[in-house]
């Protein structure tokens, strides 16, 4: 593996100071847990003259459970997120998704914000420099053709974070700090369907916190498809939030990961709400999930497999939550 490029390392103690430092240095990158950025820097997938380490910013850490919502600092580690009793009890999809990321040692470093901003992944991009060079590079870095879809004008690298679909299903919003102050976005607005520009962050903006509403009567879960039981990124991941009222579905939100350039919230599920969750409804649900995803040849698992497996993953999870809510 090549050596780490040279860079200047800065450790600000507030979000505002971090944003100001970023603005003063044109080529800088924010560093959180480091499990994504540091290997990418060494593999030549990222380059920077300045690294701004966010680890010393107190505001970014911590979980606060209020009466109607949970506030989570973006610097909270995935291990802390998965182990928090309030999260596990109130927002099981979030705890399950945090626990599904990589392995336990990664989760001690990796942060919520880092997982939400995870670089998109592709079998043609996450390779060594000699490999990519021999393949004449790709659009995402140094090349001009998307190897997954050569006629395409855009990059199809897949968003592969586990936590984002859980937070989409839970209707979360994010707090962003920039040089012009703070703003709040629905998490669904935080992502673009583009493997090269998948985050709706302006230059130098920093993801500071996530807020998740508490919805009494709703249950949730996350299921992930991968080859090994640990470390692997998702071939496909599905998060579901569901409310049941007697024999009728009172609410349903589904989001997927690994099968599109952004975490994908499935559209059209409102048609199922108010109905019983019978075979016809489940068949319709599978159709809607399939319509909402765009699996491409970004992983070693085939596209037909992921197109078949993702709706079934959703159907199983919805059925489980429905049964448990009885």
């Amino acid at each position: 593996m090549p050596v780490m490029p040279d860079f200047e390392l800065l450790r600000p103690d507030s979000a505002e100071a971090a944003v100001a430092l970023h603005a003063s240095r044109p080529a800088s990158r924010y560093l959180a847990g480091g499990t994504d950025l540091l290997p990418n820097l060494r593999r030549g997938l990222a380059d920077t003259a300045t690294v701004i380490d966010l680890g010393g910013i107190a505001e970014l850490a911590g979980i606060r459970v209020d009466a109607d919502r949970v506030h989570i600092g973006a610097g909270t580690t995935l291990a802390a997120l998965a182990a928090h009793p309030g999260i596990a009890a109130e927002l099981p999809a979030l705890a399950q998704a945090a626990l599904a990321v990589a392995g336990p040692t990664h989760r001690e470093s990796a942060t919520l914000g880092g997982n939400l901003c995870l670089d998109t992944r592709c079998r043609y991009y996450n390779q060594s420099t000699p490999w990519r060079e021999a393949n004449h590079y790709c659009m995402k870095l140094e090349g001009d053709v998307c190897r997954v879809a050569p006629k395409s004008k855009r990059c199809y690298a897949a968003f592969s974070g586990d936590v984002a679909p859980a937070l989409l299903a839970l209707d979360a919003e994010v707090d962003i700090v920039g040089t012009n102050g703070r703003r709040t976005l629905a998490l669904a607005e935080f992502y673009h369907d583009d493997g090269m520009r998948w985050l709706a962050l302006d230059r130098g903006e920093l993801l500071a916190a996530v807020r998740v509403p508490l919805a009494p009567g709703w249950s949730s879960g996350y299921e992930k498809l991968r080859i090994r039981g640990a470390i692997d990124f998702p071939l496909s991941g599905v998060a579901v939030a569901l409310a049941r009222d007697g024999e009728r579905l009172a609410g349903l939100r589904i989001a997927c990961t690994g099968v599109s350039s952004r975490p994908e919230r499935i559209e059209g599920l409102d048609a199922l709400v108010g109905q019983p969750l019978d075979d016809a409804a489940l068949a319709q649900l599978e159709k809607l999930v399939l319509r909402g995803i765009q699996a491409m040849e970004t992983t070693t698992a085939s596209v037909p497999y992921r197109r078949k497996a993702t709706p079934i993953l959703a159907r199983r999870l919805v059925t489980r939550l429905w049964t448990e809510a009885a």
């Binding site: 040692t105 990664h106 001690e108």
Partner: peptide, 15 residues
């Protein structure tokens, strides 16, 4: 690191 298992290859010394 502070009693918790971490990956030394994904951690800057100064962090």
């Amino acid at each position: 690191v502070d009693g918790r298992p971490r990956l030394a290859c994904c951690t800057l010394a100064h962090s």
